[in-house]
Design a protein around this nucleic acid. Sequence first.
DNA 1: GTGCACCTTCGAGCGCACTCGAAGTCAAGC
DNA 2: GCTTGACTTCGAGTGCGCTCGAAGGTGCAC
Lengths: 123, 123
Amino acid sequence: MGMTGITIQEASRTSGLSAHTLRYYERIGLVPEVGRDAAGHRSYTGADLAWLEFLTKLRRTGMPIADMCRYAELLRRGPETAAERRRILQEHRERVLERIAQLNGDLAVLDRKIDMYHEMESS
Amino acid sequence: MGMTGITIQEASRTSGLSAHTLRYYERIGLVPEVGRDAAGHRSYTGADLAWLEFLTKLRRTGMPIADMCRYAELLRRGPETAAERRRILQEHRERVLERIAQLNGDLAVLDRKIDMYHEMESS
DNA sequence: GTGCACCTTCGAGCGCACTCGAAGTCAAGC
DNA sequence: GCTTGACTTCGAGTGCGCTCGAAGGTGCAC
């Protein structure tokens, strides 16, 4: 089983994060130390990529880096932190729901404003 | 008709923006020059507050300050800029829709992850 | 008339999340 | 054996959107 892994450039393309950002995430402890090849270059595994994908979803939904670091650290500490990890995700979920509701509300205002412009133009 | 207006502190409470932010918005041209009372203090009218409310909706939906400034400037230029203003809002609307769709997608992943934790805990 | 609260301008500072660049290492190709 | 190019570490720089603080003015209460 050659778990060879891919280079940082390929991981960048796959994850949508820049190579700079991938190294940054690693040094702040957001991503566990990535394996290295013979030359000392980073070698990203499928598990690394899956974790990065999950992280980008958390980021996109507005979770601060600090909170993601906390989650990552709990994960490293092992299964006894599962309950707290779940709590973090649930609280975040609530914030995302609120965010979506707010966006829908603001979207409605935007739509009304746009309609107003259409009426103005047709009169 | 006493269009007396309210102080910056009251406008801050009403709009949810800090007094510092209100002055900042004014100096970058996001808010047209607010009227002054006898003492030279800002006096916010209903129109000012309505504009601030609209601005906060644009901000909350992720419109960059620079774009809002552009919109504000078009508004100052008069009715012949209405079509372009509508275009700006429509393009923004599209981005908001995408954003909502993405959030819903990410929320689904979050939900699955949370379910996973529940299953872990109940086994 | 003096304390006080609240306002004013102005420019500097901050927090977040990257983003970049310098300087060096290493392996492959010619 | 030398160039090329992608990688490495490290610390400093950037952009955005505020946020703050210093220094001073104004008007009212006592």
